[in-house]
Design a protein around this nucleic acid. Structure first.
Lengths: 213, 213
DNA sequence: CACAATAATCGATCAGTGATAACTTATCAC
DNA sequence: GTGATAAGTTATCACTGATCGATTATTGTG
């Protein structure tokens, strides 16, 4: 009658890291399907095929699982930003392409994006004390790659504002707004998504770059 | 030894609505201090001076409390947007002022803003089933006032894009990005806040409006 | 092969959570 | 006074993240 718990076979002695990966995989899938706050550690453990306390051999807290997922996703974003920067030439077209890299990443990795930038961290700093600011640092890593691209545009004399930090923060905020709203409010009556993204990016470009006669 | 629970005197018979207000007040204060997910119904009840189950005489669920707070805050935003529209003339300066109304509101009501646009609602739609989309509708109400302002700018032939919905969504996303990041990532090494806001708003204005000779 | 070491894992349990049920108490109209 | 009932209580439930101590299973070594 009662659901028979299917247990994954115990890992060989040095292979604990493998289980760790399985936990992260299961967590990511569950978070994608049901949202972050509605997924329990017991649900994660059941998908993996281990007992709930077994999770704590690999992660100190539940937040550490989400933090790890976030860090990994941002490693990918950093890669993409570096790729975008590798064949970057300071033109408006190339600049827009770089902005699109960020948006595409967010929409392709909505769960990682949520963890990194949209999750309540608790204003009392509880979260930070536990997992540190490694997830945010990972995000900032991507942010810095983005700043380098903005710097190239400024060096070419194309930006409207000479302060790279300020300009990057503004652009980042502009991109984040669209990504986070499309993720969090998917049921809002948006105009067609790709059109909206294109419009948004060119608005940001017009705002950021000098108006070349 | 153990903390003596201080109980608020029972309300007279018709005065239940008064207790309801006290609950909302307590919840708002606690949410502001500790963040949404870390505040429990028991903590709210203790501040009010009643037992925890007594809350459920006034709100069906905890989410209903946050939803109510959100709706009320957005009523204020709608007021402010209407005020901004009342003495609105289609100029770049006035347009920027309207954008600033939104940003200021978000930063002055961070908790309401969080509930309305930044809280995980659960991808399975659990949240919506419970509290409905009244909080979002309240937010959309404000959005529509904003759209009216954009429409005035377009009618004056000042906007870069003729599609009001598209343009409003883009601008909204741009504003939301800044507000939400400043709220959720207060510890990020931002440049000076007021400067950043001013820069952001003028970037959006340049992107949105035609470049007048 | 036997054996100790230990990585991997489990069952039991804890305090705290949101929520419900059944009950009591104060207040009101008559 | 006497019901009716709004306002509030205590006890409890299923569930949550987390901890403890015990128990496997695997491993390199004698």
């Amino acid at each position: 009658m009662t659901a028979p718990k299917i247990r994954s076979p115990r890992k060989p002695k040095g292979q604990g890291a493998e289980r760790r990966e399985e936990i992260l995989d299961a967590a990511l899938k569950l978070f994608s399907a049901k949202g972050l706050h509605t997924v329990s550690t017991r649900q994660i453990a059941e998908v993996v095929g281990i007992s709930q306390p077994a999770l704590y051999a690999y992660f100190a807290t539940k937040d550490d699982i989400t933090a790890e997922l976030c860090i990994r996703a941002f490693a990918i974003l950093v890669e993409r930003m570096e790729a975008a920067r590798a064949d970057f030439v300071p033109t408006a077209e190339c600049f827009e392409r770089a902005l699109k890299v960020y948006v595409d990443f967010g929409l392709q990795n909505p769960d990682a994006y949520r963890v990194a930038f949209m999750v309540e961290k608790g204003l009392d700093g509880t979260y930070k004390e536990r997992v540190g600011d490694r997830p945010m640092m990972a995000g900032i890593g991507a942010f810095q790659r983005f700043a380098e691209i903005v710097a190239e545009m400024r060096d070419a004399g194309l930006t409207h504002d000479d302060d790279v930090q300020r300009m990057t923060q503004t652009l980042w905020a502009g991109l984040h707004g669209l990504v986070s709203l499309l993720i969090a409010r998917a049921d809002f009556p948006w105009v067609e998504r790709e059109v909206l993204i294109a419009c948004h990016i060119s608005l940001l470009r017009r705002g950021a770059l000098k108006n070349m006669g």
